[in-house]
Design a protein around this nucleic acid. Structure first.
Lengths: 208, 208
DNA sequence: GTGCATTTTTGCAGTCTCTGCAATTATTGC
DNA sequence: GCAATAATTGCAGAGACTGCAAAAATGCAC
């Protein structure tokens, strides 16, 4: 992915503004709490009008989470699972997830703060889980393709199997990330990946 | 569970009002859509003032979902998984979930409508997922106990394995219920249970 | 039944989120 | 420059939700 070839002033400004809003939102919520932070305060710090705030985000929560266009994420998923070289479904799903959230390893102050907020405020967690859930169906579709392509002991209901498989892997990634945060967010992304795979395997052994 | 021993008029009325609100909420949202239904409309049909609405529910969404006290649910879970006679973890989890949502089989117009609404409106789904997530941690704790009690090849991280196992089983139950709704909600609860177990097994086979 | 304590309901005023619309301003391609 | 396009903004307004204090309903003595 080349670094955005020819970005005009307009687009550069938009990206910049978006980031300013996200930063302002996370900062103020960190300082004042979720209910203590109003859209007015955030807009004010970001240097825009409250009305403009809603041109960038649908809600206060979205601004805090930095919700972005899901289009690219979805394309990454489809490509990732489809192009997996392994026949190991777990590895294919988990590694795709780390492709998506890998940039999380190159973490910024903003991202670290954001993750802390999500752990702290149930309302945010709820919204984030919802986003993950939307991802789930996209991932499940990619997994169905994966299954069909391999043709190895095709299950009766590939769609359903795919959804459960995704739910399982997503849970293991989530837990690996949680651990990672608990450990002070020091480890690198590879160890998170390995940890996540390991958790999945352990669970499968236990369930069998 | 004996039928509420000595309930005064005050308590009976409160329960009745609560149900009237839930019914009104579901009916109006079914007819007018999620945004088309206002708290004023719901309160009006329920025969209460808008202010009283918020004495019963924290939000419109909660009224639609009929959100209730999670205390009893949590006790049911702990008891269910703990008292499971099988050594089969999947069976223990899934059957506990059906213990919880079993009364769903004795379904009412209200519950059927509610489930349809949740499938239809992402905002509701989001809120419900959040509730389930809270349940997950309770279930995971019960599963850890289950694992410890059996002492069969204790995994390195029982807590994490438990969370993933629960996520897997919850997903399979969710999908079984979804199918059930798609089929017109005709089948009985036992077939849902069997379907859910079957889905889990298939997935495990595929993942191994 | 009457009177008193406790709950529940309600109205009201107010804050905050979020939307549609139309005017204004900024960027772009020519 | 100049027109087309896009972003920003103000404004008016709907709707969700809260705190507070008055009013009504209920429970419990007596």
């Amino acid at each position: 992915m080349p670094d955005t070839p020819a970005l005009g002033l307009r687009d550069r400004k938009r990206i910049e503004t978006r980031l300013r809003i996200e930063t302002a939102a996370v900062d103020i919520v960190t300082a004042e709490g979720l209910d203590g932070a109003t859209v007015d305060m955030i807009s004010d710090r970001a240097g825009i009008s409250p009305r403009t705030f809603f041109n960038y985000f649908d809600s206060k929560e979205d601004a805090i989470l930095g919700t972005q266009d899901m289009g690219e994420v979805q394309r990454t998923i489809a490509a990732g699972v489809a192009s997996a070289e392994t026949d190991d479904l777990v590895a294919a799903i988990v590694s795709t997830m780390f492709q998506i959230f890998g940039p999380l390893a190159a973490r910024t102050q903003l991202k670290a703060q954001r993750m802390a907020l999500v752990q702290e405020h149930p309302r945010l967690l709820s919204r984030q889980i919802h986003q993950f859930t939307q991802l789930n169906s996209t991932m499940a579709a990619a997994v169905v393709e994966f299954l069909n392509k391999r043709e190895t002991t095709l299950p009766r209901d590939p769609e359903h199997v795919a959804e459960i498989a995704v739910a399982t892997c997503v849970a293991s990634v989530r837990i690996a990330v949680k651990e990672w945060i608990a450990d002070g967010a020091t480890a690198d992304i590879d160890s998170m990946y390995l940890r996540s795979i390991g958790l999945t395997r352990e669970t499968l052994n236990t369930l069998q």
